[in-house]
């Protein structure tokens, strides 16, 4: 009973905030609504007993990715009017696609195509069950090869990002600490003798 109340409260707020993300005019508000969406979905995951994933979602997405996102939104001068251009023009087409998708989904879900009999109902785990431990147990043993390949993918991402963005522009100014230290007073300072005023 309590679980159902929790689920419905947070499910409704997830949907509401997700809608707000795409409808509010201010991009900073949209980003903050997205934070709230992530947070409420984390709570829904928590009710599914996926504590580790829920905490990771909050830490990684809310804590890191979205903060970065808000920074970028604040630093860039985004022209909202330009982003909204053509909204009305594309609305009918978008609505049509959305309706077709909705119709397809309803027809799939209500029909008996996806038989759930094959899968048994999940049994709740006892309170002292740690799914962080369960994940850790298989991550470095059973899935060690996949884990290593994922690590290589991240390495490639770093190399690619550096190779594509780092370039020496002629107008870029660099610091050279060695020559900064070697500098002597005579190089920078010139004492000019001025005759004293006569009046």
């Amino acid at each position: 009973m309590v679980e159902s109340i929790i689920f419905y409260v947070f499910a409704i707020s997830t949907v509401t905030t997700a809608t707000a993300v795409v409808t509010v005019r201010n991009p900073v508000h949209a980003a903050l609504f997205l934070v709230l969406t992530f947070f409420t979905s984390a709570i829904i995951w928590m009710t599914l007993e996926a504590e580790f994933l829920a905490i990771t979602l909050v830490l990684v997405y809310v804590g890191a990715v979205m903060v970065l996102f808000v920074f970028v939104v604040m630093m860039l001068d985004i022209n909202i009017a330009l982003l909204r251009e053509g909204f009305v023009r594309y609305l009918p087409l978008g609505l049509l696609v959305a309706l077709v998708m909705l119709g397809l989904m309803v027809s799939v879900v209500t029909s008996d195509i996806f038989v759930l009999d094959a899968a048994s109902e999940p049994v709740p785990k006892p309170a002292d069950y740690s799914n962080t431990e369960a994940l850790g147990r298989v991550l470095y043993t059973e899935h060690v090869f996949a884990f290593e390949v994922a690590a290589v993918i991240l390495l490639v991402a770093i190399i690619a990002a550096i190779a594509l963005t780092m370039r020496k522009r002629p107008q870029t100014k660099y610091q050279d600490p060695a020559s900064q230290i070697r500098v002597r007073k005579a190089d920078r300072l010139r004492i000019v003798k001025m005759p004293a005023g006569e009046d």
Binding site: A146, V149, A150, V152, I153, V156, A160, A163
Partner: peptide
């Protein structure tokens, strides 16, 4: 999937 992503990511770059 992971192998495919490793290949594709390198190719994009």
């Amino acid at each position: 999937y992971l192998g495919l992503e490793l290949l594709s990511l390198s190719l994009y770059a």
